[in-house]
Design a protein around this nucleic acid. Structure first.
Lengths: 190, 190
DNA sequence: TAGCCAGTATACCGATCTGTATAGTGAGGA
DNA sequence: TCCTCACTATACAGATCGGTATACTGGCTA
């Protein structure tokens, strides 16, 4: 990716997240990135493609960001579940608090045939699979149920954080997740 | 509200929810409602005001919709918590499955000074207060914590439902909520 | 009968939208 | 030296944006 393209994608990412996708025009992206529209269309071809690469890049960065937290928390699975919530809190602190960019993008993209659609749904599927995998060692029999519960707590916490419903919802969700893990583990030990 | 204004608000509500607020223009709203733009601006004054009344109307309708479920479930508080999730599932089935209109609107409204902002945050605050109130009788000491957990489950379920992460997330959240209530009640009985 | 009111139809305003066109600049490599 | 590549600058196209203007119609009510 050329320097101009990189600056453009960074500017687009910031603007899309802060103001919404439809509210941001290509002229503004170009101006904020210090490139011309010509450069934008030479590199990306369309605004839609910029949106796609914005979301794909977010997803990729989040997974890499999370991977470090998960690695550091090995090997206990309960600690690794906690690491997901810790990573989310750190990510939110760094990238702003308007909630999940995938959820927000989904609010603006109605057409399931939109090329960004599989990125959005894929990210959520991946997170569900992650939670289910983490749950499997703690409670093999109830892994699916436990994974889904962890997923709901996590998604709810991101929303509550974005809308500022109460203080530190991600921390609260992490604590609740630990309680869930403990209950599930003792239930299977029976 | 005049007949034309009512049709306009109904059309706007449907279009805003399905396609997003910024993606829908006033010309389209007028065309879909079978009114002219003159009528729109005579009745509402601005697109922003249409957005405000759309969200305020949604909020009002949801509270009335929920109130019937809550009343029918009296007096047991656990049943009333379940009623919130039952109401959410019925509401989603009736109004479409793109998640919470408040969360989606928040994704598109960046300015906290926007007149729709207090409606969005107010709705979430009201839901948190409701869950906390319901939790109070079950577990007086841990009502705040329990209320927040129920809130996270509920919000997470709405997101998961909108993004179609897995089947029937609202039902799953309801079950999880019941488990939480049972645990909290027995913990306080100790 | 007169006036008001909600509505229609149509045309227009300036601004902004995505996207394209032409022309030119400066650096690096074969 | 010559070509390619990334980039700048500027102008413009066609459509749509939110919002306004003028002129008119039908129904209700005082």
């Amino acid at each position: 990716m050329t320097p101009g393209a990189r600056r453009a994608l960074e500017a687009a990412a910031r603007l899309f997240y802060e103001r919404g996708i439809h509210a941001v025009g290509v002229d503004l992206i170009a101006a904020e990135a210090g490139v011309t529209k010509k450069t934008l269309y030479d590199r990306f071809g369309s605004k839609e493609q910029i949106v796609v690469e914005y979301l794909a890049d977010r997803d990729e960065r989040w997974r890499a960001f999370l991977a470090r937290y998960l690695d550091d928390a090995r090997p206990a699975q309960a600690a690794r579940v906690q690491a997901v919530f810790d990573a989310s809190r750190a990510w939110s602190a760094k990238h702003g608090s308007k909630g999940c960019s995938m959820v927000n993008a989904h609010a603006e993209i109605s057409d399931p045939a939109h090329p960004a659609f599989p990125i959005i749904t894929g990210q959520k599927q991946w997170m569900l699979a992650l939670f289910t995998d983490l749950a499997r060692e703690v409670a093999p029999d109830g892994a699916d149920r436990l994974g889904r519960s962890l997923m709901l707590l996590h998604e709810g916490a991101l929303v509550a954080h974005g809308l500022n419903v109460f203080a530190d919802p991600i921390g609260h969700a992490g604590e609740q997740a630990q309680a869930l893990l403990a209950t599930a583990a003792s239930a299977e030990a029976r």
